Computed example of a mutant assay.
Amino acid sequence: MNALGFLIEVLFGLALMAVVLRFWLQAARADFYNPVSQTIVKLTNPLLLPLQTFLPSKGQWNIAALLLAFLVAAAKYVVLSLMLNGALNPIAISIISLVAVINEFLTLAFWILIIRAILSWFSQGHNPAELIMMQLTEPFLRPIRNLLPPMGGLDLSVLLAIIAIQFIKILLGDLFGVM
């Protein structure tokens, strides 16, 4: 049963990651023609397009993608619950699914910031993946940079963002007992 549980976790986790990225790419107004964006769009379109027919986007906010992320997280917990004990609590599954979507966003933000920081030491900035990472993270790094005093070329905004992300993840874990 552990192997099947692992497989379910991985498959639903990858699907949730793709849908959260789809929502985030549109919210950040990232380059739609970037190869990374195109891959995410093509991966999520089969499930997202039917939802978008009755839940259109509101400006930069793709409500259908947000709903799909919640549904993917809920489906994961329903399958795992049925596999483990067969008991379903709709309220608990709803709360855990909402927290899972928030946690997925925070986890993605954490790893994108880490990868972006490491790439800044070596890369010249001409990689499509690096461009997307910059477009995704700049909307929340810019306000942090505006609050920090000049440090002589040292950018501590990524460090502060990572600390904030980890704080929120720990807080969610303390409040909801999941993560």
Results as ranks from 00 to 15, higher is better:
96 I>D: 09
125 G>Q: 05
113 L>R: 02
75 A>W: 08
128 P>Y: 03
158 V>T: 15
175 L>R: 07
28 A>S: 15
113 L>W: 02
171 L>I: 05
108 L>D: 02
72 V>I: 15
72 V>G: 01
1 M>G: 09
72 V>L: 10
164 A>D: 03
39 T>G: 01
46 P>C: 09
170 I>S: 05
66 L>C: 10
166 Q>F: 09
80 L>F: 08
46 P>L: 06
79 V>A: 14
168 I>M: 11
128 P>N: 04
66 L>P: 03
62 N>Y: 04
71 L>A: 15
126 H>W: 05
154 L>T: 12
90 P>Y: 08
2 N>E: 10
99 V>N: 07
27 A>H: 11
174 D>S: 11
63 I>W: 10
51 L>S: 04
61 W>G: 00
8 I>D: 03
38 Q>L: 15
65 A>I: 10
49 L>M: 11
93 I>V: 14
125 G>Y: 06
133 M>G: 10
43 L>R: 03
65 A>F: 12
1 M>Y: 06
30 A>P: 08
167 F>M: 09
175 L>W: 14
64 A>Y: 09
135 Q>M: 04
58 K>W: 14
22 R>K: 12
20 V>R: 06
15 A>S: 13
41 V>D: 12
177 G>F: 01
123 S>P: 02
2 N>D: 11
37 S>P: 03
136 L>G: 08
150 P>A: 08
131 L>K: 14
47 L>P: 03
158 V>Q: 01
107 T>I: 13
8 I>V: 15
89 N>P: 02
179 M>R: 12
78 V>G: 01
169 K>G: 00
132 I>M: 13
145 R>D: 10
94 S>L: 15
31 D>E: 13
142 R>E: 14
44 T>E: 08
151 M>Q: 13
47 L>M: 14
166 Q>K: 13
145 R>N: 09
169 K>T: 08
37 S>I: 07
128 P>G: 06
17 M>V: 12
107 T>Q: 11
151 M>F: 13
85 N>E: 14
30 A>L: 06
147 L>N: 00
45 N>K: 12
53 T>G: 02
146 N>T: 05
159 L>M: 11
18 A>R: 02
17 M>Q: 06
68 L>F: 12
43 L>H: 04
168 I>T: 13
61 W>S: 04
71 L>S: 11
151 M>P: 00
75 A>R: 03
142 R>A: 13
146 N>W: 06
172 L>V: 05
104 E>F: 01
42 K>F: 10
79 V>N: 07
91 I>L: 15
55 L>N: 02
8 I>A: 07
136 L>A: 07
19 V>A: 06
